[in-house]
């Protein structure tokens, strides 16, 4: 099975390790993984700021780069949601293009969705020491219905204990450009989230979207919390040994 990996702009720039963890998880499951070079961003920052044109340009780029794969996997619910729910709408006057986009987006999956629903992963051979609380990122949860998949997969990680926080489904306040344009509200929402994380008694807050994780980590550290780990679900699923091998140099 040939899988195209869409790394996402945030992972590329901020946390390449998450990209490698994703790559490794897919390879471990027997996928042939290709990372097309032409990829940049799904277009959401422009699209959500009212610039449809950037959405259209990047949707076409995505189509060109990924149409030949059996599946596309993305370590982000938000980018996957953009592709699955918004790309086709960008071309109301071009049904032929819409058809191609729909066909590709039906093969496009968020990482935990893919591992759980397509690959039916039952044994991850990973371990984690401590309690994990899972934040349901909005697009993954509400556009893609991701809720049980990451929890079921974390359940396969030896030593990982899931401790739900209060309101895991409440937005952390990231919202892309919102987090800068309306930073006061975003910080308050992040603060509420961090308090729920801390109250859960978890050692690590885990999620499937780097944007939310940067927002939560940024607030935790500003609050003076240097001990709560902030991890992408791919990092937890791949396990500490594999993660050490991935290195970043």
């Amino acid at each position: 099975m040939r899988v195209g990996l869409f790394v996402t702009c945030l992972v590329d720039l901020m946390r390449p390790r998450i990209g490698f963890a994703t790559l490794k998880l897919l390879q471990n499951s027997g996928c042939e993984v290709v990372v097309p070079e032409g990829q940049t961003c799904c277009g959401q920052p422009g699209f959500n700021s009212g610039d449809r044109e950037s959405g259209r340009l990047l949707a076409q780029r995505f189509l060109k780069d990924f149409e030949s794969f059996d599946y596309v996997v993305i370590p982000s619910g938000s980018c996957t949601g953009m592709i699955r729910h918004h790309y086709a709408q960008l071309f109301p006057a071009d049904p032929a293009l819409q058809k191609r986009i729909n066909a590709l987006s039906a093969r496009t999956y968020e990482l935990t969705q893919f591992l759980h629903t397509v690959l039916h992963i039952q044994n991850l051979h990973s371990s984690f020491k401590g309690n994990i609380t899972y934040h349901d990122s909005c697009s993954g949860l509400r556009e893609l219905g991701i809720k049980l998949q990451p929890r079921q997969l974390i359940g396969q990680v030896a030593g990982a204990q899931l401790r739900e926080m209060e309101k895991p489904e409440t937005c952390c306040g990231f919202g892309g450009a919102f987090s800068i344009k309306l930073g006061d509200i975003a910080s308050r929402m992040a603060d509420n989230k961090c308090q729920d994380v801390q109250a859960s008694g978890a050692d690590a807050i885990v999620g499937g979207d780097l944007g939310c994780l940067l927002n939560i980590e940024g607030r935790l550290r500003r609050m003076g919390d240097e001990s709560t780990q902030v991890l992408h679900v791919a990092e937890v699923l791949v396990g500490p040994e594999a993660l050490a091998d991935l290195g970043e140099d």
Partner: peptide
């Protein structure tokens, strides 16, 4: 807008 209320985790 971001850094007034939060740190920005740096790239690696």
């Amino acid at each position: 807008g971001w850094t007034d209320g939060r740190d920005m985790p740096a790239p690696t």
